[in-house]
């Protein structure tokens, strides 16, 4: 069973709409046993890193998530929580990925970044191919809403986007994937990406 982690941190409903559209069977759950036995796990999230981590801890989910061996997809805040720490209220996060999530530095750009921006991935071949982007043209537009960003880390970054700085818009380490944008709100490209996640082995 696909589990969408329901940790009371914002808008899960649109992820559900997109999954239903893709005819995926899924449940919302915050129960550690349900999450631990899922066939794949989606961690959505808007809201603050601190509140989200508090909620995951209270529900006894932090270790369960760290130890998952099935395909995992963190969306938006769900990607940021994979890193060691977020500058947002200086919050320790799950630490699955090395690096610190930072706030966009002050510039002439508006923060949060709200809207559609290009996602450029490294094509790679065969095993190194970013399967999440199968069938999606390089540089496609995805919908972003965020004030904090994940760093570029050569061994983790799957795709990058430019806004104030260059940042990781998609990351991967083994079974853990994360995207900074909202695939559930990114039109056909986003649906394809979610579909690709559902097809991962």
């Amino acid at each position: 069973m696909i589990v969408v982690v329901d940790y009371k941190a914002g808008n899960l409903y649109n992820v559900a709409h997109a999954l239903r559209h893709l005819r995926a069977d899924f449940v919302f759950s915050a129960d550690p046993r349900t999450v631990a036995t899922a066939s794949r796990v989606i961690l959505p999230g808007v809201g603050s890193a601190r509140a989200a981590m508090d909620s995951l801890r209270e529900q006894g989910l932090t270790d369960v998530l760290r130890n998952l061996e099935v395909p995992f997809l963190g969306i938006c805040l769900g990607l940021q929580l994979l890193f060691e720490r977020s500058e947002e209220e200086d919050t320790p996060c799950l630490g699955v990925l090395k690096g610190v999530v930072r706030k966009f530095p002050k510039s002439e750009f508006k923060v949060p970044q709200i809207g559609w921006n290009n996602v450029c991935y490294k094509p790679g071949t065969d095993a190194r191919r970013p399967q999440l982007f199968d069938g999606i043209p390089d540089g496609s537009y995805f919908y972003f809403v965020h004030s904090y960003f994940a760093p570029l880390v050569p061994e983790l970054t799957v795709a990058s986007t430019e806004y104030v700085v260059s940042f990781s818009s998609a990351v991967r380490k083994e079974n853990f994937w994360g995207v900074q944008f909202h695939p559930e709100r990114s039109g056909e490209a986003g649906l394809r990406l979610l579909g690709n996640f559902l097809d991962l082995n």
Binding site: G135, I136, P137, R192, N196
Partner: peptide
């Protein structure tokens, strides 16, 4: 502008 990029349907 976001102009459509043709997504290949699975």
């Amino acid at each position: 502008m976001r102009l459509e990029s043709p997504v290949v349907r699975p």
